[in-house]
């Protein structure tokens, strides 16, 4: 219980706590995390699902990612390359979940969904067919890539810079550039097959 009389020990702890709280309280961090959640949720979900986990697991992974981010920021840890950090945590949690579930067939489901979702009744049927065939060829090329090459492609499609992809996957910048160069050249040659 505090009283009006000053207590030097309590006062010092009190001022320390105030100084710590003043720059950015947990509530401000919470607001920041919610903003980042709104910005990245769909992209992260898309990415973790592409790694082969089901939608419910994906939702759980995303929740855990942003709770980890909240803890990370509350502890005053580095804000450098935050987007890379977010995708890295999501990547690791998704792979952990995938290994836990042993649901390797999810990627096959993802591949099958490709053609189902392309059917747009408003589009010209011939044009639609051509798009479907091309997407099928591209997916065949992607499925023949190594897993790490596929991850690089997915992360690039999510708009990450090479250094962010490198951070997410624990690769060097050169490895990311080589991987993407190789993969996209293969995609460009898909029509020649």
């Amino acid at each position: 219980m505090a009283s009006q009389s000053a207590n030097p020990g309590t006062e010092a702890a009190f001022l320390g706590a105030i100084d710590a709280a003043l720059p950015l309280g947990p509530e401000a961090i919470e607001e920041e995390v919610v903003l980042l959640f709104d910005e990245y949720r769909v992209r992260l979900l898309r990415y973790v699902l592409s790694l082969g986990i089901c939608a419910q697991d994906g939702e759980d992974v995303i929740q855990e990612v942003f709770l980890s981010l909240f803890r990370h920021l509350c502890l005053g840890r580095s804000r450098e390359n935050l987007r890379g950090w977010i995708f890295c945590v999501a990547h690791n949690l998704a792979l952990k979940q995938r290994n836990k579930n042993k649901r390797q067939q999810q990627r096959a489901v993802y591949e099958e969904l490709a053609l189902e979702k392309q059917l747009d009744p408003a589009a010209d049927p011939e044009e639609q067919l051509a798009i479907n065939e091309r997407q099928m060829r591209l997916l065949q090329v992607v499925n023949a890539l190594t897993e790490a090459d596929r991850w690089c492609l997915y992360l690039r499609a999510e708009g990450l810079r090479y250094r962010e992809i490198a951070h997410t996957l624990g690769l060097s910048l050169g490895s990311v550039a080589n991987s993407l160069g190789r993969s996209i050249q293969k995609l460009a040659r898909a029509d020649e097959r």
């Binding site: 949720r41 699902l49 592409s50 939702e59 490709a114 392309q118 997407q135 591209l138 499609a157 996209i184």
Partner: peptide
Amino acid sequence: DFDKAYRDNANAPL
């Protein structure tokens, strides 16, 4: 084209 295929084929959020 790959970016579009990737985005189009993702599952809708649950």
